[in-house]
Design a binder for these strands. Structure first.
Length: 456
RNA sequence: GUGGAUGUAGUUCAGUUGGUUAGAAUGCUAGAUUGUGAUUCUGGAGGUCGCGGGUUCGAGCCCCGUCAUUCACCCCA
């Protein structure tokens, strides 16, 4: 007999996990809606041509490709096939792939429906994405993203509202110790200009991104091996190592970027976002101007964000930024977009570790009805119906079993209240109402039980 | 794609230099208690030691292979 398994890096979500996941998703959804975002869903599969080339070379390798149906080898060039190099034949045998993120499918949707869409268009999307890398801690092959993006406006209000939404989501989830790291791609470009690495921006960014992980020494080594000069590296690290308040950082960069148009623009944008936040009447708590934040995805062009929960070793739980020309890939140039993505799975892991899930998020039914024989069970059905009519999540124990077993069941399902019905209760209509957490019970009429539960 | 670690009851793990019948905790189940769970006491079920081969009189333990899991690197939510 073969033991059943599921593919590497995928998971089942049982009832207890689902309760917690939905708690996270509901909260995020609520915030997105509050800021005027509308839902969108796109297919799990996209045409491979839609996906390839959007995530860099590495990204292409991480795409799950779907084999064509039918006799998929028929069309393959025999010579290419004999070379045993899969890259030569993939485009022939696979024309679909699983989505890698939600942003690219969104861009595709916008381009396809540009006639119908009213811009600026604000959409949120909560769906699984797939990546074919090796799973490890906080890293799965199938995971959910919760994206909110705005396309069709350059306004920095969008950036400011992203910060607001992050704050609201974390507040709703009870996560207090976190930082929203913000940087701007133009600031990084300015940095690249200063050290004469205009041509080699991306390797500089990738190196910088690793700074907090592997330290200055190793980043220097790596960049040197990629052809950077000692001198220019000194310039870079002089800036990256600057410590101070946000205002001090801004002043410092302003003086450094006196000759760099790009650098100036980045600093100006960032200043404007801060100023907008101030106008909302929101404090700068949790906001951290991090010059060393780079983020991998190559399509970002403006502000970039990343959110980390402190004291949990799990990488970033949220990230995003502005991309000026994503739809350009699909023949619709000059549309600016900006978005944020929450990683539910990582949020889940972090909240689990910090024990932040409230008990209420795990409750299934509010009341369970326990009974002692056929007659009381039938009486209980009526009670259950009444409770449900009053909007109270109710279940009745379906078998005739010992009271012990029934209570045991309620206890395991974390059902907070149990109504016990025996012959006495049936006679005088006063039901035994038991609070499972406190272990107390009292005899009450059904109407007072209902008002008591609703009063909670 | 590269490197390391680990595979023993449902779960988490012990298991001596290779030696007879592989243990514990927890969970499951029945009872102590014929109307009371989470605490207590007693009994019971539960294992092809991942799989295949090798060394040996003898392998859970040593060797080789394989599969799975996991951690790290690259990259990323």
């Amino acid at each position: 007999m073969e033991k059943p398994t599921i593919p590497k890096g995928t998971r089942d979500f049982g009832p207890t996990q689902m309760a917690k996941r939905q708690y996270i998703l509901e909260n995020i959804k609520k915030v997105f809606q509050k800021y005027g975002f509308q839902p969108l869903e796109t297919p799990a599969m996209e045409n491979l041509s839609t996906l390839t080339g959007k995530y860099g070379e590495e990204g292409d390798q991480l795409l799950f490709k779907v084999l064509n149906s039918g006799d998929f080898l028929k069309e393959v060039d025999a010579i290419n096939l004999s070379k045993k190099d899969s890259r030569l034949v993939t485009t022939t045998i696979s024309e679909k792939g699983l989505r890698y993120d939600l942003t690219v499918p969104f861009a595709r949707y916008v381009v396809m429906n540009r006639g119908e869409i009213t811009f600026p268009f604000k959409r949120y999307q909560i769906q699984p994405v797939w990546r074919a890398d090796r799973p490890q801690k906080g890293r799965y092959r199938e995971f959910y993203q919760c994206d909110a993006d705005v396309v069709g406006t350059d306004s920095l209000i969008c950036e400011a509202e992203i910060v607001l939404m992050i704050k609201e989501v974390f507040k709703a989830l009870g996560i207090g110790d976190y930082s929203i790291k913000i940087n701007h791609r133009s600031i990084l470009s300015g940095l690249a200009e200063l050290c004469g690495a205009k041509e080699n921006e991306s390797s500089l960014f990738i190196g910088i991104d690793k700074l907090d992980k592997i330290g200055e020494e190793k980043v220097r080594e790596e960049l040197k091996s990629r052809g950077f000069e000692e001198n220019s590296l000194n310039t870079v690290f002089e800036i990256l190592n600057f410590k101070g308040t946000t205002q001090q950082k801004i002043d410092f960069l302003t003086s450094k970027f006196s000759t760099s148009e790009k650098g100036k623009k980045g600093v100006a944008d960032f200043k404007e976002v801060l100023s907008l936040l101030k106008s909302y009447g929101v404090t700068e708590d949790h906001i951290e101007f991090d010059i060393a934040l780079a983020r991998g995805l190559s399509y970002y062009t403006g502000c970039i964000f990343e959110v980390k929960i402190n004291k949990v070793a799990i990488g970033s739980v949220s990230g995003g930024g502005r991309y000026d020309n994503l739809t350009g890939n699909f023949g619709m140039p000059d549309v600016s977009g900006v978005g944020i993505s929450f990683g539910v799975d990582r949020l889940y892991d972090a909240m689990e570790e910090l024990q932040l899930f409230p008990k209420e998020a795990q409750i299934s039914s509010t009341v369970m009805i326990a009974h002692l024989d056929e007659d009381t069970m039938r009486y209980g059905l009526k009670v259950a119906h009444k409770l449900r009519q009053n909007g109270i999540a109710t279940e009745i124990y379906p078998d005739q079993s010992k009271l012990k077993k029934q209570l045991d069941y309620a206890n395991k399902k974390l059902i907070p209240f149990v109504i016990v019905i025996g012959s006495d209760e049936m006679k005088d209509g006063l039901l035994t109402f038991k609070n499972m957490e406190k272990g107390e019970q009292e005899k009450l009429s059904l109407t007072s039980i209902i008002s008591k539960i609703k009063g909670q």
